[in-house]
Design a protein around this nucleic acid. Structure first.
Lengths: 290, 290
DNA sequence: TAGTTCGTGCAACAAATGTTTCATGGCCGA
DNA sequence: TCGGCCATGAAACATTTGTTGCACGAACTA
């Protein structure tokens, strides 16, 4: 009993998938991966592309609780209906109690974050990327929740500049790295209110060492942004009483990496391809099914 | 001759409309206004809704240059295919050279990400949060770039449930943790295309152990989302040639943490306050200046 | 080992689809 | 007013659709 929410037909399919016979799993995955074609093409067409028996689709539909393929397809069709883009469009925002309160809370949060993204200064990011491009070495710092942003940046930059990018504190105490800053290098510090002492120390160390400083922060008043060569600002403030939002910081980090890669030109592309080839060779990834 | 650009079937229809017989105009307008149903429902269904003769649809198709209704519908279907991820397709996207190219690139990226955020299923997040709330223990997994999301989630959840949240692989090889999954616990897996083998293994381990599985992924077709109790989907596809976007995943993670905290009520609030007090006492943060 | 169940492909089935034909009715020009 | 033309709806058509019954083979049980 207590079905876990029959929300969408794709969901039901996904949930039931592991307990299905092998061939039904195959066609089920095919439907999940090509749900648009599932709603528009005929069963036999799908079977031909998927390399399966037409009957399998009927059986699949019945296996997950529908009377037949027609009914499943109708459900998929309704789920994809474009006018349904915002099922909450009413925006009643009852906000009172019950589960709806939580939903409204998320909706508000997402909308606020979506609104904040376009406010990011793209020119500042482009300038900062140029600094990164010219840097002999790149240090990245982030503490507490900002550590996740720092690590993402570290990961993406290392994809095409593996030897020159390093996370501060990755291979020992931070203090060791702080002494290693040199002119011609770039230091990225990520942080927002309340600011950690450690991040401020990094910023100061970068300043003293004559390294370029790029601050990703929530305010020009942030201590680590003071005197930074580049200040990339995002909006962290969100629904009161909750953790600040890192969505903007992540968006900045990703854009920064993308532009830096773009500036890297053919050389960066080559490096990235090498990295990807190495990962593929190690069979890190699940092969895509044609 | 000299067709005025056969861009989209809807366009051809619109252009040819005035020169058509009255009843064909009616049907044509109906198709233009309900093109989604035109691609999914049958000709007779449409005729019933439009209050017209089924044959009119065939005649309409032939009147604007198609061999029949099937061919027109196929054209409409292709025109609506979602793989053309750019709803802004108009977008001249000068993209030429110079510094403006980079700026335009970031702007596009941010806009696309902002558009993707409201499409996240808030109900699914609320449901998943309820599962987390009831879980005796919470495991979090993410590899490669998704590790940053996993760590953010780990950080935020540990703020108010320190003893019950753990990053898979944080204290030794992953395999040790995989064997520790138990019924009544929750496992969160984050990943997108290309999927790592490791993340799929975690999902399977969770399934076998009878633990609740929450998948944060870019598609219902993601291997780790199969059979998951909750699938939270975001859009990772971004500007071609660049890394997939994690903005959506971060937004989901933050919302999940926020709602879970909200469900925790007074107890969670108390825990969070304790944690904050401890951090402040260690003078981790720079004091705010009044 | 023998018996049973279950998954799977093939082929035949009835229903539904798109198309065509035909008859009707209105319109315009002679 | 008559005759040809075209638009239109209804019905018959061949095709395609989704479905189901059946047979074969693998996996499991006793």
């Amino acid at each position: 009993m207590a079905e876990p929410a029959k929300s969408s037909p794709l969901n039901e399919l996904r949930i039931a998938l592991p307990s299905l016979p092998m061939r039904l799993q195959e066609v089920g995955r095919f439907v999940a991966a090509n749900d648009y074609d599932a709603t528009t093409r005929s069963m036999r067409d799908l079977a031909a592309v998927a390399g399966a028996d037409p009957a399998a689709f009927t059986r699949l539909a019945k296996a997950i609780g529908y009377s037949g393929w027609d009914e499943l397809r109708a459900a998929l069709t309704e789920a994809r209906r474009p006018s349904q883009t915002s099922p909450f469009s009413g925006r009643a925002k009852s906000r009172r109690h019950g589960p709806d309160a939580d939903v409204a809370l998320i909706t508000d949060k997402l909308e606020a974050e979506a609104a904040g993204l376009p406010r990011i200064s793209t020119h500042a990011i482009a300038d900062a990327a140029r600094t990164l491009h010219e840097a002999k070495r790149i240090w990245i710092t982030g503490y507490r929740s900002c550590r996740s942003v720092a690590e993402l940046l570290n990961y993406e930059l290392r994809l095409f500049r593996p030897e020159q990018v390093q996370l501060v504190g990755a291979s020992g105490p931070d203090d060791l790295d702080l002494g290693a800053f040199r002119p011609g290098e770039a230091v990225i510090v990520i942080g927002f209110l309340p600011y950690t002492h450690a991040s401020v120390r990094v910023a100061q160390a970068a300043y003293r060492a004559g390294a370029k400083l790029i601050a990703i922060a929530d305010s020009v008043a942030a201590p680590m942004a003071e005197g930074a060569d580049h200040a990339l600002l995002f909006e962290a403030a969100s629904s009161p009483g909750f953790f600040p939002s890192l969505t903007g910081a992540i968006a900045i980090a990703q854009s920064l990496a993308a532009v830096t890669f773009s500036l890297g030109g053919a050389a960066a592309k080559k490096r990235l391809e090498n990295t990807e080839a190495r990962l593929a060779a190690a069979s890190t990834y699940v092969p895509e099914k044609g």
